[in-house]
Design a protein around this nucleic acid. Sequence first.
RNA 1: GGUGCGGUGGCGGAGAGGCUACGCACCGGCCUGCAAAGCCGAGUACACCGGUUCGAAUCCGGUCCGCACCUCCA
Length: 463
Amino acid sequence: MTFFIYDSFSREKKKFEPINSNNIRIYACGPTVYSYAHIGNARMSVVTDLLVRVLKTIYSNVKFVSNITDIDDKIIEASISSGKKIQDITEKFHEIYNNEMKSLGVNKPDVQPKATDHINEMIEMIKSLVEKNAAYVVDQHVLFDVSKYKYYGKLSRRTKEEQIAGSRVEVADYKKNPEDFILWKPSKKNEPSWNSPWGEGRPGWHIECSAMSEKCLGTPFDIHCGGVDLRFPHHENEIAQSCSLIGNDCKPDKFSKYWFHNGFVTVNGEKMSKSIGNIQLVNDILKKYSGNVIRLSLLSSHYRQPMDWSEKILDQSKKTLMRFNKTLEENGVKKKDNNIMKNQHMSEFLEALYDDLNTPKALAVLNGWFEKLKKKDLPNDLIVHLIESAINILGLNLKEEKNNSENVINENKKKVIEKMIEDRQIARQNKDFKKADEIRDKLKKMNILIDDTTEGTKWILND
RNA sequence: GGUGCGGUGGCGGAGAGGCUACGCACCGGCCUGCAAAGCCGAGUACACCGGUUCGAAUCCGGUCCGCACCUCCA
C-alpha cells in the first residue's frame, strides 16, 4: 500500500516516495524547554509520533529525530525571573517533557539532540555561510542575507515586498534587508555565551535545526515536521540556511523532500496566551484525564485542521476508551492471526491512515468493527484482534490504562470499597433500596462507578 | 495591508458531483428494584447569494463570518 502525504511546500497531497526506502528519515522541531508542555506542544508530538508509527507499518527502517531547544531568549528570561540556573531549568523541563509525552503514548525520538551540544556544528555552518557570501558580519552579529538565496519565501509564499509593507517591527539598522535574520549574536553579560570567530556570543534560533538535522539525518531527508506557525519564519529560514550551503540556487527539496505541518490548537476559539491565562498544560490535564484520553482527543480531528480544545472532547474520548476497554476485557483473543496486518478489514483501517493520516476516518472504520462484533458478522476472535491491533497502531495503550486505574487505589481503600459494595448487596437483598442507593451515591462521590451484572457487582475507578 | 486555513445536524468530526460517514448528547424501546453499562430503533446537516449540471454540501463566481501567520510561539 502507498502512503499519501500532504506536502505543505507544494500545498498538495502527494504519493510518499522516500529518498531511500531502506532508510526513512524524519525531523521535527521540538520544544523549547523552559516550562511545562501545553496541549499545542502535545498535538505536534502526538501527530508526528503517529506519522512515524504509520510509516513503520510500511518501512522497516524509520529514523526519527526531534530536537530540544535549550538555549533561547525565553529560557534566559525564565532564568532571570526565577533566579534559577539555565541548565537547571532546561534539564528539569526536558525531563518533564519526555515524561509527559510518554504518558501520551509518544515514543521517544530515535535521536533527541540538544542545541547546546551542537554549538560547534552551528559555528561551522555559519562560517561556511559567511564564506559563501550568503551571510555577513556586522558588529559581532552574523546575519543571513536573504537576497542571496534564490528560493527565499517559497515555502510560506511570501514576497519581500509584502513583508516590508506588513512589517510590524522596526528593522534593526545593521540589517541590509529587513528580512535578514540572525545567525549569531553577541551575548549580554550574565547571558550564556560561546567563543566564536565573531566574538563571545550565542546562536540565533533557526540555525540549530539546520545544524542538527544535517548532523543526525544528513540532507536531504524525507519529511520535516512542525506546527504551522513555524512555517514562517523558522522553516523558511532553515531552508535558506541549509540550501545556501550547497548554493544560492539550490532547490528547497535538497533540504527536506516533504513538509508536514500540523494545525493550531485554540481554546475557546482563541490562541493560548499567558495574558489571557488560557494555556492548557498537559501537566494539569493529566491530573484529571489519562494520557490515553488526551491522545485520543488529539487524534479525533484531522491533524491539519484547527482544533478548539475543550473538556467536551476529553469527556467524549474518555467514554470511547471505556467502551474499547470493556469490549476487549470481555472478549479475549484466543487465536491470533499472524497476518492480521494483511487482513482486508485491516487494510481498510490502514488505508484511512495512509491517506494523509485520516484519523477520524480510521476511527470510523474501528467503530464499524464494533458493529460487526454485535452483529456477529465476522469470527469474534478476528474482530477483537483487529480492534486490538488498530488501537495499538494509534498508539493507545488500554492495558496500561487499566493498570493505572488499579494502581492508583491502595489496598486499604480497596477494602473499604469492597465492604461498601458488600453492604449494598445485603441492603439490596433485604429490599432496602434507599440504603443501597445511598451507598452507590457515596461511591460515586469517591469516583467509583459500579455495575450490577449477572456475575455480581463490578466497580471501576472513574479517572 | 499581505499570506494561509476554515465555516457540515444540539456538540465533536470525516467525506467531496447522485450512495446512512462515524462518535457523543437527545428521544422511544428492551434489560434492571432503580441506576450505570449494554442492546434495538428514530430524528436532525452541509454559512449566504448567484451560476454550471439531469442532479451540487461537494465544481465556478461573489458575499459574510471565524482562526492562524507576517514579532517569540507547536
